[in-house]
Write a protein that binds this DNA or RNA. Sequence first.
DNA 1: GATGAATGAGGCTTCATTCAT
DNA 2: CATGAATGAAGCCTCATTCAT
Lengths: 191, 191, 191, 191
Amino acid sequence: MVTTPLRADAARNKEKILVAARELFAEQGMDAPLDGLAKRAGVGPGTLYRHFPGREALVAELLMAEMEDLEQEFVTLRQADLDALERLDRWAQVLQRWMTRYSGLPEPLRQALGEDFSALTYGCDMVIGWTDELVRDGKAAGVVNDFVTGREFYRATLGLAWVAAAAGARPGAESENLYRLARAGWHGSVE
Amino acid sequence: MVTTPLRADAARNKEKILVAARELFAEQGMDAPLDGLAKRAGVGPGTLYRHFPGREALVAELLMAEMEDLEQEFVTLRQADLDALERLDRWAQVLQRWMTRYSGLPEPLRQALGEDFSALTYGCDMVIGWTDELVRDGKAAGVVNDFVTGREFYRATLGLAWVAAAAGARPGAESENLYRLARAGWHGSVE
Amino acid sequence: MVTTPLRADAARNKEKILVAARELFAEQGMDAPLDGLAKRAGVGPGTLYRHFPGREALVAELLMAEMEDLEQEFVTLRQADLDALERLDRWAQVLQRWMTRYSGLPEPLRQALGEDFSALTYGCDMVIGWTDELVRDGKAAGVVNDFVTGREFYRATLGLAWVAAAAGARPGAESENLYRLARAGWHGSVE
Amino acid sequence: MVTTPLRADAARNKEKILVAARELFAEQGMDAPLDGLAKRAGVGPGTLYRHFPGREALVAELLMAEMEDLEQEFVTLRQADLDALERLDRWAQVLQRWMTRYSGLPEPLRQALGEDFSALTYGCDMVIGWTDELVRDGKAAGVVNDFVTGREFYRATLGLAWVAAAAGARPGAESENLYRLARAGWHGSVE
DNA sequence: GATGAATGAGGCTTCATTCAT
DNA sequence: CATGAATGAAGCCTCATTCAT
């Protein structure tokens, strides 16, 4: 992918938009009106549109930006002196945090799962790939159930992240238990 | 709650609306425009609003109507000559089918989880109660992990039902595995 | 065409819209913004949209309303005690007045000529039919060139009406001459 | 009007724009978005605006460029060994071709007729002047009606060119007749 | 001078909800 | 009560035009 470097002002605006989007999406969920986003970023709707033709493109870029952090965490985790199970535990948490960083984010992530090509699939597939790597390690180490794949792990995490993010969800014990359930799911021996 | 009995024509209209809603929601998902619903039911939007002040009320009533079937299944299941694990397996399937009967249904169900009072909470709490009963039986029989509650079971099922309903989800094996994962979650011994 | 009679308020609004449209189109031409029209009529954009889904529908209705007047003139003319030539002269004037009643009207009329079905074709074809009747009479009376048809007559009139309506067109003699030219065109012998 | 000669690159850009405009206008009509024009010409919109402050200026220049061809045809025609009537016939065709070279061109031409000063008036007046010359010859030869002037001839041609360009206009006979009508208009006797 | 990013006023629609009939 | 018309706030997008780089 060849990307001509952006002009200074364009880069500045794009950044302003992304910053504003992070705030706005965090506050109002990911289907907050884009016009409002433009206003918040202090740019015209046309500018927003120039940089991101449609919400999906925006979300994709937003996630890609954060995916670097995610990759960082992945790399660190892989190199860490931990056993496979511990790694998966941590990765699950990392994933969940990533998936719920913005209210409403799980929705587009789920959608990406059902599409072969979309602005998001590329990024998501990357994440699934990382997950799969850890899951395979887990299986090799005998701490992950046979039938679990990286994709399954990812999907389950996504689903649980989604429920856990219910509006007035009691924090603490409840999320805890949900996670234990999932963990038992991929780790626990069956029967 | 004292409810004055509806006039015959009013009752008929309400019924027409509910019937139309079932069809419409089945076709277009639960956030289909209400205007279209009114038209399909052959009533004016005003009438729709007289009976249901907002979409949530409508959904709640719709679900309550179907909850009778669900209760029926619950009762049957409880009386069936099955062991606790088998019961839970079947219940999980029943639940999942119920949760995905309409595309978009999981969303309001999740919302209800986070609210103390809403048109849906009453019905959902009932379902959770039934689930809890089976879960407790399961624990008593030693086939359900300690930390799992009916509420958790319900939540996990909801989350997984939601992911499983991704647009172009490959049917078959994939959903299968997701379910196995959940099952291992509440059933599987940990460590 | 079965038309259920409009409810009083609907009829009132529709009328308000048509009245406003007449004013607005007369002032700003027929591609004046519809939002502005709604505002001028004192209704919401939704109301406008309900009555006329798109500009074309509005224009068509507007013209149909005025076509009644036109038909009236046609009928009167046909019954009048005039020779065929005189009739055509008058009809040409009537036509031209009709075509230029609103600034910008010729454009959609021209478009209708090129379409087989559109909101306007029906009305236009009616007008062309009337014109043809008079033209045929003219031919029978030997005052119209052979090769001229009602459609041609209509088209020529439209084209000349369009030029004549140039923004700052000098009124008077100029239009006069244009008309004489057209007249000589279909009538043939020059006085 | 004193024009400082353009720098070589500027001249090149202007040329690129005009070339692109010819193509674009031919494809999409004269109200094609200027953004697209700039892109097609491979220049920024700013450059476009530096050379042509607005669409009208561009159109004017475009036409002026093509007017040289037109003048060429005029000169040739005048020197040709033809009688006055034949000349007018040919000129009418030349004019019409010129006026419909781009879809949507008649509109600005008409506008120019109503303005005393605009980017287009100069060019148009020139064309009208040539027309008038031929018309006067025609009158002298007794083949043009008295009341017809060059301006009238031009206007009638424009109007008929405009109608003839209706979207789905049946080609052939229809346009033919329209032309015969116009011809009979200025020439008077029909063959 | 050239570039192309930014602007921002509108354009058209949609739809939950209210209210006249 | 039922009806369905009206409301009007948004939503998204386009494009002529200006201005920072």
